[in-house]
Computed example of a mutant assay.
Amino acid sequence: MRSCDGALSEEAALRPDSAQRCVRGKMEAVRTCVGCRSRAPRSSLLRVVLRNSELVADPSATLPGRGAWLHPVDECLDLALQRRAFGRALKVQEALDPTAVRAALRPRTAPREQAEEAVTSHE
């Protein structure tokens, strides 16, 4: 693994695509967004778990069970639903209800949308 000072361990030298990145002087796990398939630090993604056939947001990443990681934006959620990525990531065959996840994304995107509206209304 690579330490934050740039030193590379013997184990990491054999694996060029490490699953950790240096963020703010600390090593942080990297996960893949099931929507856009891009890799990002764990702290920038939202964990989603399955509860009674309903997708539930797990912002603290502490709920039990298999989880899928998603950028907290509607675009990635829509892509994941379109690609049926949650079913594959969570290893389920049944239809999944994304209502709770979409509701969890609203508070995160609402201030940004309001700020964009304020900027465009002043022009």
Rank of each mutant, 00 (worst) to 15 (best):
residue 86 F to V: 02
residue 56 V to E: 00
residue 38 S to Y: 08
residue 52 N to S: 15
residue 93 Q to N: 15
residue 31 R to I: 03
residue 90 L to N: 06
residue 41 P to I: 14
residue 88 R to E: 11
residue 30 V to D: 03
residue 75 E to A: 15
residue 80 A to T: 00
residue 97 D to L: 13
residue 32 T to I: 11
residue 45 L to Y: 01
residue 68 A to V: 11
residue 30 V to W: 04
residue 54 E to Q: 14
residue 31 R to N: 11
residue 77 L to Y: 01
residue 31 R to H: 12
residue 33 C to D: 04
residue 88 R to Q: 12
residue 69 W to G: 06
residue 33 C to M: 05
residue 87 G to S: 11
residue 87 G to V: 03
residue 78 D to F: 09
residue 50 L to F: 09
residue 28 E to P: 15
residue 90 L to D: 04
residue 83 R to D: 10
residue 76 C to V: 02
residue 55 L to W: 07
residue 74 D to A: 14
residue 91 K to P: 13
residue 36 C to K: 07
residue 53 S to E: 15
residue 32 T to L: 11
residue 56 V to L: 03
residue 103 A to P: 01
residue 80 A to R: 01
residue 91 K to F: 12
residue 80 A to N: 00
residue 100 A to L: 10
residue 31 R to P: 11
residue 56 V to S: 05
residue 60 S to C: 09
residue 71 H to W: 07
residue 30 V to S: 01
residue 66 R to H: 02
residue 60 S to W: 07
residue 45 L to F: 01
residue 72 P to N: 03
residue 99 T to F: 13
residue 70 L to A: 06
residue 78 D to M: 10
residue 59 P to C: 09
residue 51 R to E: 13
residue 98 P to W: 13
residue 82 Q to P: 07
residue 46 L to R: 04
residue 28 E to K: 05
residue 46 L to I: 12
residue 95 A to L: 12
residue 49 V to H: 10
